[in-house]
Simulated assay, not measured.
Amino acid sequence: MKKNFAPSAPYSRRAPSPPALEVRYPLMRRRAGSESQFVLVPSYENADAGQLTAEDLSIITGNETRLIAENKSADWRYEDRRKAQRVLDFLYVGPVTAIRDLQFLQNEGITMIIIVRNTRLPSRSLEMASQQLGIVGEYVEVMGTQQLIHNLPKTISTINQHLLHVYRSQAHQCTLDGEMVVDPATFKRGKVLVTCESGNELSPAIVAAYIMAVYGNSFESAVQFIVVQRFCVSIDASLKQMLCTWGGILNARAVVSRDRGPVGSEVGARPIKTAKRAIHDTISPEDHTPDQDKSHMQDQERFCGREAFAPFHDVAPES
């Protein structure tokens, strides 16, 4: 049967896809003395106020105001992909095989290992590290990006609570003002190693999400900060989209935290709106004049003069 219609414009039958998210990976070594773009500054803006205080954030970050990443891309070797690299002073990323290097774990002072996996099989290397070095082990079960973003708040909270626990277990109360302090000569900071099968996808994505939550960076700058230190990181489009969504969640949480007032106070209490007002409801009857009506309808002028678009048009049948 011949069709007597044709499309007015090109179209596709597939479902719409999200736009591609590109991350520019720096390849050149940063010049000595130049202004570095790989700098992190702790920010309490995206922190969960219900679980983390400003004092806790200071303890976790070691009270450092700026953290500069060392660009290792120029000296990167293929064998380095089998090792774990330090991304933050207290956070490492690498493949799950790096757990077997007990000497590395001991030298770096690793106190917790997080394994991101899509299988429930236990890791013998993690059990050995826990028995010989007393390292705490945690598993993050991931069957897809949807489950990964669901587990991000819990995973980030697990890292923060472990770092705070290590600090408080070595702190003692000062006799002068009651503040909890540690002895710098004997204090050993908590350090967390996040691993996955390759160390190039899932574990860097979690570390990037952590940087976005604790330091307030965008997903692009967070990934860049990791790549310059572990050059083999390769985050696919679905993980990039997940990190972009995570950034939106953090921004929304920050807005809600700023706007939230004390419960039951006049600041926090807001009237409940039952319905959205129509444009004519903004004009009172006594003040209704033709001039005011025009001022309210000026926005409709941008729709004037537009031709109607029909997705299909008729075609004459062939004789």
Rank of each mutant, 00 (worst) to 15 (best):
V142T: 00
E127V: 01
V228H: 08
E197L: 06
A69C: 10
D287S: 14
V182G: 07
R277N: 12
E64G: 03
I206V: 15
K2D: 12
N251Q: 12
A269H: 14
Y25M: 08
R120G: 02
D101R: 06
H280D: 11
S123V: 07
T61Y: 03
F303W: 15
I272S: 15
R86L: 07
F219Q: 06
D75V: 07
A205N: 13
E318R: 10
A275I: 14
K276Y: 14
R82A: 13
A47H: 08
R302K: 13
P262I: 11
G199H: 02
S123A: 06
D48G: 00
V214Y: 02
E318P: 06
A208P: 08
K72N: 08
D236A: 11
K2F: 04
E70L: 07
T289H: 07
S169K: 15
L202V: 09
A15Y: 14
K294D: 12
D299S: 10
E301A: 11
N151I: 02
F312P: 00
G33N: 02
L193W: 02
Y167R: 04
D259E: 14
D89F: 04
T53E: 03
Y210T: 04
L164R: 12
M28I: 11
R260A: 07
V181R: 11
V267R: 15
P16L: 12
A84H: 13
R13N: 09
T61M: 03
V207T: 08
H313C: 05
S265I: 09
E35W: 03
H296N: 09
G33C: 07
I206H: 08
S17L: 10
A205V: 15
I149L: 10
D56K: 00
Q131C: 00
L126E: 01
P271W: 05
I211C: 07
A310W: 13
S73I: 08
A49F: 01
V142S: 00
C174Q: 06
R168W: 06
D177N: 13
E79R: 12
G137M: 06
P95C: 11
L250H: 09
I99K: 08
E55S: 04
Y44K: 05
R253W: 01
